[in-house]
Structure formats: structure tokens, C-alpha cells
Design a protein around this nucleic acid. Structure first.
Lengths: 358, 358
DNA sequence: TGTTATTTTGTGTACGTGCACAAAAAAAAT
DNA sequence: ATTTTTTTTGTGCACGTACACAAAATAACA
């Protein structure tokens, strides 16, 4: 049974403390000047009762507007960042009534100068907060310093940069997710089977923080369980039209190591590998990959991908905006580091995961 | 970049349609009487713009109060239903401002007459809606009929009863979760290993709908993969002080089938089995179970439980209340059947799951 | 003590919507 | 044409809070 609570209004506090509503307001928000006597009277009442402000009324009455700018990579349809944007837009709708305006700005994830340019440009919009995916470490530190100087709070999603004064971070513990990938894969294989570890790269650019950490975690599992001899690491370059060359490399790997029974890749494009393997008639190879992209799901349903590890990107974006809103509007304390769950998906549970968007 | 939207107010519509605010209100809510002419004018404007009412202002102004009653089993600390209650309380806090009052009523999950009595009793509170866990099928149908007659909407959590006019359902597809349990377990075992399937029961009462379905799903996996010969089904009675007898039964099973390498149980008390196995010095047996009870988590961290399958009970309760609120207050259409994800947890990802409460 | 400067407090309006009731317009009856 | 009845419309207050501004109380000074 619930007690009928939350009925105490500012007006009630004022009456109880024998002061006016305005004075209570001043004490609550520490604005204006209040005599010591009145302040004490109000504080006393506040300690006795538990006043929870009516957030609806507060937002309705407040005329302050907030502008958040969200910075993350431009993407093509179906890519990982599409989900991130979805989360931002969801938050945008929900907090619209709270006078939070969400602006989205993209940068090129393979060009750090593009990030810097976009970052510089945000200041003309006079943002009240920034939410960003820190793809480039050094550049992010520079930007963060500037934000701190200008007293603009900021949060991270996807990955995190340490030693800067961010408000919150939502993302996956990618090292651990790599470790889990290793365990899942090896556990579902007959003893002595080999795994092909596909290290993908782009000319010039190094791998993202996330993928590197996943790989590290995977290798840690290998190390801890003395499985080094059961891993073949193969580097392939990801670039438009490079498919033939990549397939050749993979074919060679299979010839040299006929006991390969599974493969892993650490970016979100496992569907590309699935296609390679299909073309090479190796559809019996177990594949594990990351993120629930539409194409990955399709491959999984067709049986070419055994596991996907997911990280609730929509939630990351949504929660980051929500926490920042509550932090600024309601002065709510927020958790700094928030690891999202490491979701393990197979053919049999992927649909429920996709359909549930809470 | 976002457009500045949601700025259109009733006042604006009134001006555009050349009528008063009151008339717009009447058209929007289909109350009172409006001349054909005015109605058309307003409708026309409404079609041209997209009016999204300010929900904050609406809730603030509305004086209608809602009372929801939540019906689910009484429980001991640490049991499954504790999480359900947590979700209800969370919703209670969040929708308090929307004038939704959440009342919680318990019944004895092993006594159908207790459910009936509690159900009957809710009417004196004049509830506006009911959210319930339909543990007893027949009795729920009776109650549902009464609710429908009295025009009180109701929703289900945990499990569902068909052919009644419920508003929404949140729960897991338990058959599928059983199927997945089977796959996970067999995939992580060497070929030809046997699994001990523990059917637990209480004298008199039959198993709950959920556990029965999980078992069905598990057996379906067995069937489809011709694994019948690798399952030993053992029934043990769950009752205070029956541990010795149960351990004896389990010991016998191990003697008769020394190739048993894993075990499964379909209720949420896998920690009990873990204890049995520990006492019997069978700590190398892989165990799979359901729900993230504190005790289960402990067993998992100690290595006695390999997998837990979880179903976001807090979310189930929370979402059911939220949907009912939006349905009644804002006339929002809600999804009827909502399957929550089938979460797969291992030692390595359980912590992130526990710490993330969004 | 009276006047002015300063501090402190109280009051009023706005936010967007719901809802009750009064006012106005139209229709019906005389 | 006037009154009465009915239909339709417009207005005003309330919800709980924020915030600006006026009013009151106190302090400072002559």
C-alpha cells in the first residue's frame, strides 16, 4: 500500500515556516538575499518534511532553454551510428517539453581534422552542453579543455577519454566484451579447433579505441586459457573494391590451417565476413561479431553468424542526454561512468531484443 | 540539425481557426457541443499543423486522479517478485506527478483462493486500472471477466492469459527461453555428455505456466536435435527441510549416469541446486538457471552456475504501469503483447547487467 | 525625528492546458 | 417584435513553480 505523498507545495512550506512563497523559492534555489532568520525557518521545515518539487510545474514555468549539441560520426544507412542518432532523436522528443533542444552535428570518423572543425564550429550556437563520441583521443582532449574553460559541460558516449572533466559516460566495457567473445566462441567449439582472428584496418587510420580494446580482451582470454596455438591472426584491409584480395587471403588461411572452425572480427561489419565465407563455401564456420546492424541480423538469421555482441547504442545516446538534462535542469547528481550491459545475441533471441525498445 | 517544433499551442490553433480556445478544447477532446462550422475550421487547422499537446501542462491542469492496483505474489527477500515490486515502485515515483497512484496488493502464489480473495477486495478501492501477474489461469479469467464488466482496464505481467480483453502484456516468451537454455547448455558441452533435467514441484500445486513452458521449450530443442538419450529427467520436491532426500536422489542419478556433465532447472532457484551439487562434490557440473536473484548471482560468481537467463522483471512492471498511464491519461495507443528480451548472462557480463538500470 | 539608502519580503503574472460557468448567438415560441 | 428556450461560444480561474518587481522593514545618516 502506498502513502499519498508529494502533496507538499512551496506554498505549504511558506505557511509552515511563516514566510512568503518568494522566500522559500530563494532558499530552495539559493538566489537573491534572505535574512538569516527566514533562512533558518525554511531550512528547518525542509528538514522535517520531504519536499519533492513538481517537475512538471517547474519545467512549465521555467523560461530557461537548453541547447545540447551531439557530435558523432556521419554514417551510411544501416551502420552503427544510425542507432546512436535514433537514441538522440528519442531523447530530443521526450525532453522537448523540458525546453531541451537537441542539435546533431556529424564529423568524418576517418578524418581527425573534420572532428576539430566541427568541434570548433559548435560554439557559434552557444550550446549549454555537448554530448560526443570521442573518436579521436588527442583532439578530444583539446576540445574538452576548451569546453571546460568556457564552462560548458560535456558527456561521452561509445568510448571515453580519461583525465578530463566530463559529466557522464555511457558505453560498453569493450575489453570485457572481447573477453566474452573469446569465451563464447571457444566454448561452443570442439576441442583443438582453430579460430581465425580477423584484424581489419584502413590504410593510414589506426583501429578505433573500441575495436582495439575488444581485441585486447579477446587475446586476454586466449592468454589465460593457453589457446594461443588455436588462433590465426589475419590482417585484411577494408576498402571499397578490395573484396577479391581479402577473399584470397582468407582462402589461403583456410588452406594453411584446415582446422579453422570459427572466426571473429572486432568491428561492427561481421556481415562482410559472412559474405566472404559464403562465397568461399565455408558456411559451416562459426562467426561472432558486434552490434545489431540490419545486415548482421540477416546473416545471423541465415545461420552464417552464431553470436552478436550488442551494446544498446540507442540507450547510450538517450541516457547521456537525459542525465545531462536532469543535471542542468533539476540539479540532479548523475553517475559518471555507466557501462551498458554486454548483450549476447543468437538467432533465437535476437528478435525479442530488436522489438523491445525500452 | 533540429527544427524548433512543438511550439504550437491551443491558443494558436484557436487564432488560426478563428474560434476560441474553449472550442478547440472541445474538438480536441470531443466533449461538449460544437457547431459543424467551427468543428470543420478547427479540424482543418489540425490537419495542416501537427499539434503535440504539452503533456506537462496537461497533467498539471488536469484534476483527474488515477489509482492503479498491482497484484502479484507475496515473496521473501531475494526472490523473483522482489524485482517486480521494484519496477512498480519506480513507476509509482515517476508517475506520481501525473496523478497516478500505485497500490500494491499481494496474494499467496500457492493458494488460488488467496488470489481470488485479494482480487475481490480491490473493488472497494475503486481502481482505475489493474496490473497483475496471472499465476492462476482459471481464477484470472473469472476476475478478468468481472473487470471487463465493470469497465476497469487491466494488464498482465510475467505471463499472459489469452482470450480476455487486456490492455497490455509484458513478459518473456518462456518457451523460447527454454529452447535457448537447451542450446546454450548443449553447445558448451563435449559431445555425448548427459544433462540432468531437474523438474521441481510442490506437493499439490502444479508448476507455474512459466516454468512449464520453459521446460517445453527445452524439450523441443532436445527433440529437434535428437538429444533425447542425453537427458535424464529427475523430479524433486521443493519443500522446507527436504534437502537430504533431494540430495539422495541426485546422488543416485549421478551413480546411474556418470556421464552427466550439466544440469538445468526451470524455476528461479538454481542456487539451491548449486548448493546440492557443491555438497555432493560435483562442482564441475555446468548449471544453467533463470533470473538474477542475488543468490544465483553469488553462485555464478563462485563458478557453480554457468548461465543465467534473465527477463528484466523491473522493466515488465514499470512498462506495464507506464503504458497504462499513457493509455488512460493521453489516450495513447499501446502495444498489446510485449516480449522482453531473453538475456543471456555469464560470470563475465553479469555485473554490467546488474548495474545498468535503465 | 525625519529622510534616504539598503536590505528583505511579499505579490503578481506567466507557462499551456482543463474545465466550469457566464455570455452571446441562434432558434423557437408567444 | 418580444420573450423564452436552446445551442454555441468565450472567458476566467486553477494546477505548482519561476521570476520580476513593488512593497515593506530595517539600517544608516543627517
Amino acid at each position: 500500500m502506498e502513502k499519498a505523498k508529494g502533496k507538499i507545495r512551496i506554498k505549504d512550506i511558506a505557511r509552515m515556516a511563516g514566510v512568503s512563497e518568494g522566500t522559500v523559492d530563494r532558499v530552495l534555489h539559493q538566489r537573491g538575499v534572505v535574512s538569516e532568520k527566514s533562512r533558518k525557518a525554511v531550512k528547518k521545515v525542509l528538514e522535517e518534511i520531504d519536499y519533492t518539487p513538481n517537475l512538471l510545474a517547474r519545467s512549465l514555468a521555467s523560461k530557461k532553454k537548453y541547447r545540447f549539441i551531439c557530435l558523432f560520426p556521419a554514417y551510411n544507412k544501416g551502420e552503427y551510428w544510425e542507432s546512436i542518432e535514433k537514441g538522440f532523436r528519442q531523447a530530443s522528443e521526450e525532453f522537448n517539453n523540458y525546453k531541451v533542444e537537441v542539435m546533431i552535428e556529424y564529423f568524418d570518423q576517418f578524418d581527425s581534422s573534420s572532428f576539430l572543425a566541427t568541434a570548433k564550429a559548435v560554439f557559434v550556437y552557444n550550446p549549454d552542453a555537448i554530448i560526443m563520441a570521442p573518436v579521436f583521443r588527442q583532439e578530444t582532449i583539446l576540445f574538452a579543455r576548451e569546453l571546460t574553460e568556457k564552462k560548458i559541460p560535456f558527456s561521452f558516449i561509445d568510448s571515453m577519454v580519461e583525465n578530463v572533466e566530463f559529466t557522464s559516460y555511457y558505453g560498453q566495457h569493450s575489453l570485457q566484451s572481447g573477453y566474452i567473445a573469446g569465451k563464447l566462441l571457444f566454448n561452443s567449439l570442439p576441442k583443438e579447433s582453430k579460430i581465425l582472428v580477423l584484424h581489419t584496418y584502413r590504410k593510414g587510420g589506426s583501429g578505433s579505441i573500441q575495436t582495439e580494446n575488444r581485441k585486447k580482451g579477446f587475446l586476454q582470454y586466449i592468454e589465460e586459457n593457453n589457446l594461443k596455438n588455436f588462433c590465426e591472426i589475419l590482417s585484411i584491409e577494408i576498402i571499397e573494391g578490395n573484396d577479391e584480395e581479402n577473399m584470397r587471403l582468407i582462402r589461403n588461411a583456410f588452406i594453411q590451417h584446415p582446422d579453422i572452425r570459427a572466426a571473429i572480427t572486432f568491428n561492427s561489419k561481421v556481415h562482410r565476413l559472412a559474405k566472404y565465407f559464403k562465397n568461399l563455401s565455408h558456411s559451416d564456420i562459426k562467426l561472432i561479431g558486434y552490434d545489431v546492424l540490419e545486415e548482421n541480423v540477416k546473416c545471423m538469421k541465415e545461420g552464417f553468424v552464431s553470436f552478436l555482441i550488442a551494446q544498446r547504442p540507442e540507450k547510450q545516446a538517450y541516457c547521456a542526454v537525459r542525465d545531462m538534462s536532469f543535471h542542468l535542469i533539476f540539479d540532479k547528481e548523475v553517475n559518471k561512468i555507466n557501462y551498458v550491459p554486454i548483450d549476447i545475441l543468437m538467432k533465437e533471441n535476437i528478435d525479442y531484443y530488436l522489438n523491445f525498445n525500452e
